[in-house]
Write a protein that binds this DNA or RNA. Structure first.
Length: 557
RNA sequence: GCGGUCGUAGCUCAAUUGGAUAGAGCAACAGGCUACGAACUUGUAGGUUGGGGGUUCGAGUCCCUCCGACCGCGCCA
């Protein structure tokens, strides 16, 4: 093990610089944060703290930077950690000693998949995403939300949050009745092809195998039962079949949930009435025109919303009230993924959070619309129209790896046009292969090392000999590995999973450059050991990043 | 009409939430393998960040206004 006596962590270093700044200008209460330098010529890390002090100090940021540096360098720990610190254009640019980056590699080797994990925040987060009506198969559009939600959940867990993922099965509405009538028709059509299909039914082929399964179980029984009587049973049967299929596809897409919540189950348990009663006691309900309203305008909504219709039936919003209160029981903070067509919901949820005296407890992440193309042709995605492109088809056509990487790659507020033609044809152009290739390349080197340099490989796995890492390419790669933790933390805090795919590409890019410039397996045992250590650490970080994205990390391809 | 989201290189997208000369990939052009995987790499070219105004040391980011795209505006779900 290298000797790291006196070497500070980046946080400690920032604290020392902050102390120096506070000693000079205590009334301004400056706080120093280091971020990776934008350009190599700016050193390793930099801080813009001097800009904030310019007014109070009545000096140019440049001079302030110089004074802070001089003061900070009086500290022995700072001197041991910093190779160079210079004020440039108001920024303080810092280059760290090689030992700092060697330690990063050692940390990654020692911690493995746990590398970069944040301390537990103690905050419980509920994350709901992907939820769909149980009236048909998952469609490609849901692939985007599934990918983004699952990746955010994994990143937040790694960053230290206590995350609970859920899916709401929308099985309490009138569409279940239409589903039941649709299955009734499909079932009859098995013996009478002329049997009329309901106009408002779900016309896709996917109900035919469901009908066959029902017939295999119950025989001709439902042929002799009137539709009105049969529909509730058939609807439940179809619901179960379709949800099971949705769960299977989600799992194939590598997305697991902690809870699949049936809305009907909430209904049956009386959650709606309890939810309304609760709001009534909180004083945010009132009666008008025979209906019951929630005062959502208090939270800035355009108008108040009805929860109980004048005929006594609850609205959809009433379901939401019940479910969101339920979620609030198991989480401190509740996040919903919604399409842009539901942005009007934000104010309503704000109103609920305010009523519960938990302002800000509900957060909505809007994922912008996705449109489908096949070449020049824009595809309709209406289930009613019956021409849907399922998520399963996309999995079959482009594969889970390419699809998930592609879906996570875009920021949530960027509308996405998914061209099936392009996705297939371009699969070799999808950056996911670039990243996976990096991982496979490392695996290949390690396989070779096992034969040619077994002693060096064993030493590298123990984290020995990293002191030999001094080449700029080696240090650049190590610096990138050090960004893993902060990147994941940023993904969690900013709800920006797309930064993970960007990071994965940067790690792979830095590795490819290192690999091009530095031969790993050499005659020099010390060099070989150090570089093998760097390779193993890189492989670990790449694998962890890809895992968060739901993408496999192959050892060969 | 009111409200929301968005507009960045030929194309697809970033920009660490107000910081340095706005960065990547693809496409284009010119180079690099008798050593660990060339699905790689080096370089060149490509921009009035939709237009205009404002706020300040500093704006792609914040405010106003116009243009354009998408989406909402039910006692539907």
């Amino acid at each position: 093990m290298a000797d790291h006596a006196g070497l500070l962590s980046l946080d400690e270093l920032a604290a020392r610089f902050g102390a120096a700044a506070r000693a000079l200008w205590p009334q301004a209460e400056p706080v120093v944060q280091f971020e990776p330098a934008r350009r190599a010529e700016f050193g390793d890390v930099s801080t813009n703290v001097a800009f904030g002090l310019a007014k109070a100090a009545r000096k140019k940021p440049q001079e302030i930077g110089a004074e802070i540096i001089a003061r900070a360098l009086a500290d022995g720990g700072v001197r041991a950690t910093v190779a160079a610190a210079t004020p440039v254009a108001g920024f303080i640019n810092v280059t760290l000693v090689p030992a700092f980056w060697q330690r990063v590699v050692g940390d990654a080797l020692r911690e493995g998949p746990q590398y970069g994990r944040g301390r537990p925040t103690g905050e419980r987060i509920s994350l709901e995403f992907g939820s769909a009506n149980p009236t048909g198969p998952l469609v490609v559009v849901q692939g985007r939300t599934l990918s983004i939600g699952d990746t955010l959940a994994k990143a937040m867990r790694h960053a230290g949050y206590d995350v609970f993922t859920e899916w709401i099965i929308n099985d309490a509405g009138t569409q279940l009745e239409a589903l039941g009538r649709s299955l009734y028709a499909r079932y009859h059509q098995l013996v009478d092809p002329a049997f009329a299909f309901p106009e408002d039914g779900y016309p896709g082929d996917y109900l035919i195998p469901v009908a066959e399964k029902l017939r295999a179980r119950d025989g001709d029984k439902w042929l002799r039962v009137a539709q009105a009587e049969a529909v509730p049973y058939l609807a439940a049967f179809a619901r179960d079949e379709i949800v099971a299929e949705q769960q299977a596809v989600a799992r194939r897409f590598r997305v697991e949930y902690d809870l699949w919540q049936s809305e009907k189950a909430l209904h049956d348990a009386g959650a709606i009435e309890q939810g309304i009663e609760r709001l009534r006691k909180l004083g945010v309900l009132y009666e008008k025109d025979g209906a019951t309203w929630v005062r959502t305008t208090d939270a800035g909504d355009d108008e108040d919303r009805v929860v109980i219709r004048s005929d006594g039936r609850p609205t959809y919003f009433a379901n939401d009230i019940a479910y969101h209160f339920e979620k609030l029981q198991r989480a401190d903070h509740v996040i919903d993924f919604l399409g842009p067509d539901h942005h009007g919901y934000i104010k309503r949820l704000d109103a609920l959070a305010n009523a519960y005296a938990r302002p800000g407890a509900f957060e909505v992440i809007l994922v912008q619309q996705m449109t489908l193309k096949r070449g020049d042709e824009t595809l309709s995605m209406s289930k009613r129209a019956g021409m849907l492109v399922t998520l399963q088809e996309v999995i079959d056509e482009v594969g889970v790896d390419a699809a998930r990487f592609f879906f996570v790659m875009l920021s949530t507020d960027q509308p996405l046009t998914f061209d099936l033609e392009l996705a297939k044809k371009q699969s070799n152009e999808n950056p996911v292969f670039y990243v996976q290739y990096g991982h496979a390349r490392i695996a290949s080197v390690l396989r070779k090392a096992r034969e040619s340099h077994p002693a060096a490989l064993a030493a590298a796995e123990r984290g020995s000999g990293l002191g030999a890492l001094t080449d700029p390419m080696e240090l650049a790669l190590a610096r990138r590995l050090a960004e893993f933790g902060p990147t994941v933390e940023g993904v969690a805090r900013a709800r920006a999973p797309h930064r993970l795919t960007k990071y994965a590409r940067e790690v792979a890019g830095d590795f490819h450059q290192f690999y091009d410039a530095c031969r790993v397996l050499t005659e020099d045992e010390a060099t070989t050991t150090a570089r093998l250590g760097l390779c193993i650490a890189t492989k670990t970080v790449l694998a962890a990043t890809l895992a968060m994205c739901g993408v496999s990390a192959p050892d060969a391809m």
